[in-house]
Design a protein around this nucleic acid. Structure first.
Lengths: 341, 341
DNA sequence: CTGAAAGCGCTTACAG
DNA sequence: CTGAAAGCGCTTACAG
């Protein structure tokens, strides 16, 4: 009754209840017909023996697992942690599991993890687009292997793949437009070199500026080497030293905004009294003083949407792939100030 | 050659290579003897066919999975995300997987997830002590079920369980002592009601104050309803209104420190110019503005240690359970200021 | 050094 | 409504 590894198996239950394993299986899965007396007897034995079905065996037999995988670059970043939460919350309702692959932005690790992932046979994959150049290949790999895939955060111009995508351009447009409505005209655009996402956000900035003033002064377009606060600090310092005077900063991410605030602080400029700052993504907006105003990316909701979409696909939905645009929402806190003339 | 679910199985490889599945299995697992010619032939076929072994089948046959579980209260909190990273980094080296159970501090969810966990048959469990009152029972459950368990963060007075524990008292003592050395005497202790962890941190505060001044002024012991910034904001507001004047705040967590900073900001007090703030845990110190000083809990390292310890146990190490004390380290940023008399 | 065979814990046609 | 039997994709004694 206590064979080394697994304490109680379906056989034990069957024996104890005086039925076949087939019957036990049927009550476990609520499939087929089982007479009420048998069902309750089996249920009782299961309870008594503390029987818990073995998912591994179930998966093998059913020839499909009960898990999906999520590939993300950095679990430490609240952005991705929120997506995880969203995914898990919907998976929980169907008792699916999540395999997390945290690449740390490393292609080498990604490769290593891809093998693990394949071995684990998840039924589908969600992948954050903000990894590296390898994302596209990875997505293609999955698609070719026949895995249902949902991309989140940004499009990766891979045909025929579902995606839940942030509307970076429009979000930025609105953030900048808001600054303009507050009376700002000299607005620094603090982005990141060679980032597709940042260039979309810059585009939104351009549109808002063009619309309001008919021109974009290129001197206000500043770019950091990366999304880190440290690089943003340096870039903002440079802008400050270049004597381009501005009354507001549109940072293409909250991490960049943090760096900008630090640079302003260094030279004694106050936020928002002297300079208004608005961020993007909402990762750190809640831990700055004054409170950072930002365009919040609804990561939790994106995670949920992605998981739901994926589950739809697993259920056999074969409508053409969609690319859903998600608009960031404006979080208005105290780091904005009206400019009066 | 392409049966519905699994494209390539060990059988296909065996057939294609003209050997038995036993041989293929031996080369996959590097076990037993396989002649070089056969080995390389098999390897080539595996490559050609894009064969990836099925972990589910392997687990079933070997009667053990290749995964452990980590029970945590809140994946959104960087503290736990870092533990996850630590665990995953060591698991990766042995190709183990991690099942994450994010209870969101809900006992109901915990219960639900326990079932999933049991179904998945992980080989061991890591659990963060900061869930709820139910942790102790949960740990006991696992122990009784024969799962190797490692508790992280705080002890839960469960006998015979491995634990990696933060030295809350000593860490707090040092944080407060540091404030004292900076010339502070009126230091607010901002804790949380009914929290064991907070009471340990308060004890460290007491020790430092007693040592320096021979007495503890109870009016400076403030407690929030929970670890949330919001509750900390309220508690600090009250302290401010009570007209107890202080020059520093020792917050029992970074989230509390955040709330305190907000309250100070509300009444126009500047950090660190008017009031110094030191936090505990390091969850948010890296992303606050102004920079928060804090006692950093080495969560990443704790995750690693926990995973390593667990793996030792799985390898059969049966030395008596250890309880390793981990001392938080001081992160000095700009939110402290010397008081000159 | 290699293979035939049994079996891990389940589920599911197939009979009855 | 129920059971006997086959089999999911592997691994591992057991022979040879």
């Amino acid at each position: 009754m206590n064979p080394e590894k697994q304490k109680v198996t379906i056989k034990d239950v069957a024996q104890q209840a005086g039925v076949s394993t087939a019957t036990v299986s049927r009550v476990i899965n609520n499939s087929g017909f089982v007479s009420e007396p048998l069902r309750s007897r089996v249920l009782r034995v299961m309870e008594d023996l503390g029987y818990v079905p073995n998912r591994i065996a179930q998966s093998l037999k059913k020839r499909e697992s009960f898990a999906i995988a999520y590939l993300l670059p950095d679990i430490d970043n609240p952005i991705f942690a929120k997506v995880v939460r969203g995914i898990q919350d919907v998976l929980e309702s169907v008792s699916y599991d999540l395999f997390l692959y945290n690449t740390g932005f490393s292609d080498k690790r990604l490769l290593h993890q891809l093998v693990s992932l394949l071995e684990n046979r998840p039924r589908g994959v969600i992948i954050s687009a903000w990894h590296s150049k390898r994302v596209k290949e990875t997505i293609l790999l999955f698609r070719n292997l026949g895995f249902p895939v949902v991309v989140v955060h940004a499009p990766r111009d891979v045909p025929k793949v579902d995606a839940i995508v942030v509307d970076d351009c429009k979000g930025s447009y609105e953030a900048v437009k808001n600054l303009i409505q507050f009376g700002h005209r000299h607005i620094l655009s603090l982005g990141v070199r060679k980032s597709v996402t940042s260039s979309l956000r810059k585009e939104g900035y351009r549109q808002a500026m063009m619309e309001a003033f008919g021109a974009v002064d290129e001197r206000f377009l500043v770019e950091a080497a990366s999304f880190s606060s440290h690089d943003a600090l340096r870039a903002t310092r440079n802008a400050l030293h270049a004597l381009v005077s501005f009354t507001a900063v549109f940072a293409h991410s909250d991490s960049l905004a943090l760096g900008a605030m630090e640079a302003l602080d260094e030279v004694g400029l106050r936020v928002p009294d002297d300079v208004s700052v608005v961020g993007f993504d909402g990762a750190y907006a809640f831990c700055t003083f004054p409170k950072l105003t930002t365009m919040v990316i609804p990561n939790y909701e994106m995670g949920k949407m992605a998981a739901e979409l994926l589950l739809e696909r697993l259920r056999g939905d074969s409508t053409p792939p969609t690319q859903k645009l998600v608009l960031p929402t404006f979080l208005h806190q105290s780091s904005l100030r009206e400019i009066r003339l």
